[in-house]
Design a binder for these strands. Structure first.
Lengths: 340, 340
DNA sequence: GTGAAAGCGCTAACAA
DNA sequence: TTGTTAGCGCTTTCAC
């Protein structure tokens, strides 16, 4: 089944292929009458230009690539949406790939982007190592990193993790909690290192230490791991005063464990999440958390790549100020404590 | 910045471009020694074949297109994931587009797919009208519809909405509820029509009628609308015994309204959702709902397009049996009723 | 087993 | 204002 080509249209309209190309491009030199004839021919034939040919002959593909760990994680779904929207506003389409926390997939996705000669990429890199591995592939391709800066001389947009975690811990301290626990995150995640640091700093400022629970090195089932850790915590006495979760997803697992163990949040233990994903705002959940303004991050990232595409190759860093979102999972510590 | 081409590789390996092409394709006629030389040259030059050129010269792009209303809706995120996974297993990549409930975007997405000469598409069409409008574009392109069958002679994979809603209503009736309300969904959504029909049938079988609340025609803010409707319901007395929501997303809005109005679920009103999205299984939510086996749907849809791509053009319909997932938002009706 | 040449559908430089 | 020509980078006959 041969698709109709520019030549078919040209023949029907009685012009040359070049004229068809120009007419469809709305170039000013084309006589309106000719343009109309071409348009009509396209309509009749149901002509849709071949993007591959366009990409080969022309230069810009007007496509941006995005790599995130997992769109089914609402945090990344939100970012991806913001990216797509901003891109669309600027006449770009986006190709989305999930790395699923696997180096190989991340690399493959980027290779695929390079193969498609897309105009630029936004990457939420897994680690310093993978970023170093794919950097050579990206030679000369406009690129901005998202979330964490793993490399030198790259543009990136990130939220200030250290500050966000500090904000969260600070909130708990202000409510009178003293025995705080930090739980969740990959062992080799820079994000986790930063958040744990912010948590620690807040405690140290009060002369406290707090517990940072160790993270698993095997990423395989992070969520189950968080659940198990929380359950163990909840089965011991005394209970910690409050928990700062690495992420909202972790916080949810903690909530699950709390239900299982019969521990009430926030009455028995306060809980703060991180990311402000959609789940956090759900009825009955009302998770107090830290917002990273993912919409703004996505938007900034796209704007930055676009600027690079237009020639401004200067590496720029954008650190976004996180914000504490107070909902209902943290309450002041009552001196008497609970019956537990 | 010129990217390295097949010719550069050929030159370095001391062979012709044709040989490079064959070597990279792992064609048997190439001498292992030559293959190695080519491989080495590719590595040295960091060669990544140009997908556009490949698409132009060759035939199959090994890309599938998927159009869904909105990936940030966890229901579609789940389906999209299943599709992507199945596609990957079969050596296909997928291009994902959101229609955002807008005809224009749906059409544009499909046009974009046609332009890219992708090998097949999976579409969750908005309505009979849009499906009719894009059908001519799809001429001869392997295509399967997802969710609802809006047209004749098309392949599709769908869950049996009528039966699912019947299951849900039946569950409520079995628990002793008599005054049931169906709430949510677009007015012009076929899915809604089907679910409402199943709901009605279950009631009629018991000689009851039940209330099907009217749906908004303007899609703009469906969720707010559901919330308002629910709130109104909850502020009146007597309360309905139970509510069957069009979807889990709607159910969540109802839950929100219940909190606002001080109505307890399930003590005062039972609630059943539809879709079994991730939200439904969250701690504190535990929504009783109907599963459409979205993973299986996604998988089946891809397998069907793949079969079409391989030449089996017969239109096939696959109706998936929905399943009631009992969690905690429905309890038996106690004769005394509540204090409300 | 490998090379030469043609062509996929389009755009862009140059002519007319 | 429009046509002609020459590729873009690859695959694929058809020779050798």
């Amino acid at each position: 089944m041969r698709r109709t080509t520019i030549r078919d249209v040209a023949a029907l309209a009685g012009v040359s292929p070049a004229t068809v190309s120009r007419a469809l491009d709305d170039r000013p030199e084309i006589r309106p009458e000719t343009r109309e004839r071409v348009r009509e021919a396209c309509r009749q034939l149901g002509y849709v230009p071949n993007a591959a040919a366009k990409g080969l002959a022309g230069q810009a593909t007007h496509v941006l690539g995005v790599v995130v760990p997992d769109v089914s994680n609402p945090y990344f779904a939100g970012i991806a949406n913001a990216i797509e929207e901003t891109a669309a506003e600027n006449g770009y389409r986006v190709l989305l790939s999930n790395s699923l926390q696997e180096e190989e997939r991340e690399l493959q996705a980027i290779e695929n982007f390079v193969a498609r000669r897309i105009d630029g990429v936004v990457i939420s890199a897994l680690s310093r190592e993978t970023q170093a591995r794919h950097a050579p592939l990206l030679e000369g391709m406009p690129c901005v990193y998202l979330g964490v800066n793993h490399g030198e001389g790259c543009s990136y947009v990130a939220a200030d993790n250290e500050r966000g975690a500090w904000l969260a811990a600070r909130h708990l301290l202000d409510l009178g909690h003293r025995d705080l626990v930090f739980l969740g995150g990959h062992a080799d995640s820079l994000t986790r290192v930063q958040r744990a640091a912010g948590f620690r700093r807040a405690l140290e400022e009060q002369g406290l230490t707090g517990r940072v629970l160790p993270a698993p090195t095997d990423a395989r089932d992070m969520r189950q791991w968080a659940y198990d850790q929380a359950l163990e915590l909840f089965r011991r006495r005394p209970l910690p005063h409050a928990i700062a979760a690495f992420s909202d997803m972790t916080a949810l697992k903690i909530l699950e464990a709390a239900e299982e163990a019969g521990v009430r949040v926030p009455e028995d233990v306060s809980l703060v999440g991180y990311d402000n994903i959609e789940y956090a705002a759900l009825p009955r959940i009302h998770l107090t958390t830290v917002s990273q303004h993912k919409l703004r991050q996505g938007r900034l990232a796209v704007e930055r790549v676009l600027r690079q595409i237009r020639g401004d190759r200067e590496a720029a860093a954008e650190l976004i100020e996180p914000e504490l979102i107070v909902r209902s999972t943290c309450i002041p510590r009552t001196e008497g404590g609970t019956s537990l």
